[in-house]
């Protein structure tokens, strides 16, 4: 009853259970996904290009390679997890020499 009076008088604010907060949070989540949209085909093409370029410098585990877009609050980042099998010594020099 006391709570009702408080609410009726507008003294109680910022109720975390208010449905608008649920709406805001759900909206924030769908927008992060919408804005960070990249088709699986594009992501796959990016992955192949990355493998090609990185392979010039090091031997990598292609099956263990993970590429994804990660979004936190306002920013979106490209996150790559690339397991290295062996580093090539002087990779670039070898290429220019040959």
């Amino acid at each position: 009853m006391f709570e009702f009076i408080q609410r009726a008088l507008g003294l109680k604010k910022d109720d975390p259970t208010a449905s608008k907060n649920t709406a805001k949070e759900r909206l924030r989540l769908v927008l992060v996904q919408d804005r960070a949209s990249m088709s699986p085909a594009t992501l796959e093409a990016l992955k192949e290009d990355l493998i090609r370029v990185i392979s010039e410098y090091m031997e990598i585990d292609q099956t263990g390679l993970e590429v994804s877009l990660s979004s936190e609050d306002e920013s979106v980042a490209l996150v790559c997890n690339i397991p290295i099998l062996k580093l090539k010594r002087n990779a670039k020099e070898q290429e220019t020499a040959s």
Binding site: R7, G10, K13, D14, D15, A18, S19, K20, N21, A23, K24, L27
Partner: peptide, 12 residues
Amino acid sequence: MVKKGDMMDIDD
């Protein structure tokens, strides 16, 4: 409804 916290407000 905005006042009750049951609708997103303009600032949101």
